[in-house]
Design a protein around this nucleic acid. Structure first.
Lengths: 258, 258
DNA sequence: CGCCATCTTGACAATAGTCAAGTCGGGTGG
DNA sequence: CCACCCGACTTGACTATTGTCAAGATGGCG
């Protein structure tokens, strides 16, 4: 079974065998985590970053009124807060939504990967930028889209993201989250989520059974949601110049410095 | 007159004289831009990153329905999309809100700064992470806070950010944006923005004259908004380990590689 | 002086939140 | 094997926040 984290990075930069070996070694330490456990809690200053190899997790914030706001989803292959060691402390938590297999990587290993492997470095940057782009798209959605389009948009996004890592069956995928969690994601009440989902079902845009979502007509759902996947930056960009020079260049340049 | 970009980075990492000189040189090419001009437009694949040295700018998205959603503000000292060269194309625009003095920096210069100056590298990372944290906080706000608290929260955030770069007068600051722009920021209609601002004024929480905002009681406004500035990560974190090792360590380690 | 963008106001409509009750279904323990 | 329990989902009635439309006031600037 191939490592989805590596698979995903490979879409974003050309990895050498050496890169791949380093990544495999870094993600070798895998732990199994139950559903609804925190990997990182608000206020922590953790020593490890996490990569979700299997299962769903989310980044969320706890609100003063006891509520919760989900600001990102981590699907298999996603890393979280890989560079968080720069900051003092987490202002959000990472929690599992389902049982997960996660790899824990010490920050210094990530640091080393980034420093010695320019391709990995570029791929990690890509991930961060895409995360930010998703956040922006969500912000737009919550602010401007009606609840039904907002939910439809989210379902489209998840479908595309899951497709990238290949955990999708035709037009169907597992979305193992409750309506309350969806409500905390879209910023609407769980009652309203329920009504919205019913509308989408009655309109024939989606088809739900348990936690399995089937989309009869993807085009129709995307059109309804106004979904344009550019912000996910899926098209690989390997041709453009890498961000960092090979180490040899750096070393060479530094030799010329005082 | 000191360069606010450098001043801001200095809060986030200890810069050497050499670092400072490199930054000054990089930001030497300054251009004056009128208000309401795009620095970068959606769909571009720009060659330069921009740093706002003076004036206000914003990152925004154009919506299919012709609307606009503002997803970030750039105040003096802020850079934008410093690493965007990793991605294919911009999915948002950067536009000035007021006349601005901006420095245009070729991506390869940024690349070089990051590669040869570990401290600058760390400071740039910090900026990116803080940007992301702000985006998250906004997402939470738009989703869960009522319109008045949302606006109040924004006013608190701007005050703190402007305070950091020292462009604030006591409890007052210039907020050179229209109510429509504030509406596009908070994701509410401009009519409602107007009502909300009046409420805040009548409650004695703010005091507006032209584009000058005065906050009689900061504590009161922060309490009303539920504003907690942790997410801005203002406390310098210089004591924690830098992200990247000094080059000598890298080189040493690489010698041990196959 | 007059234009234009900005701000303000009121009436009305619509979307979404809240409360409260009830249904469904899987898992657990007797 | 059955009864119960609990979390998740559903429903309806009512409320309230916010959006829309349309018109008018204000004020800087040419």
């Amino acid at each position: 079974m191939t490592n989805l984290f590596i698979k995903k990075l490979e879409l974003r930069a050309q990895l050498s065998d050496r890169d791949r070996r380093a990544l495999e070694q870094a993600t070798a330490k895998v732990v199994q985590v139950d559903a609804h456990r925190d990997l990182i809690s608000q206020g922590d200053a953790p020593e490890h970053a996490f990569i979700v190899l299997d299962g769903f997790a989310c980044r969320y914030k706890l609100l003063p009124d006891g509520g919760r706001s989900i600001v990102a989803y981590l699907i298999p292959g996603d890393g979280c807060d890989l560079h968080a060691s720069i900051l003092n402390q987490m202002v959000h938590s990472i929690g599992t939504l389902t049982p997960c297999r996660v790899a824990a990587i010490p920050y210094r290993t990530i640091k080393a990967l980034a420093a010695y492997h320019p391709n990995i470095y570029q791929a990690l940057w890509w991930s961060v930028l895409v995360d930010e782009a998703i956040l922006q798209e969500w912000l737009v959605g919550v602010g401007r889209r009606s609840a039904d389009k907002q939910v439809a948009h989210f379902l489209c996004e998840m479908m595309v993201r899951l497709e990238v890592v290949g955990i999708i069956q035709g037009n169907s995928y597992n979305l193992p989250i409750t309506q309350s969690e969806l409500a905390d994601t879209a910023g609407i009440s769980h009652v309203h989520v329920n009504r919205v989902l019913q509308n989408l079902r009655h309109a024939g845009l989606i088809d739900q059974k348990w936690r399995k979502l089937h989309i009869p007509d993807i085009r129709a759902l995307k059109d309804f949601a106004g979904f344009a996947p550019d912000y996910l930056h899926l098209r690989p960009n390997i041709s453009r110049e890498g961000f960092i020079e090979p180490l040899t260049d750096i070393a060479k340049a530094q030799l010329g410095e005082p």
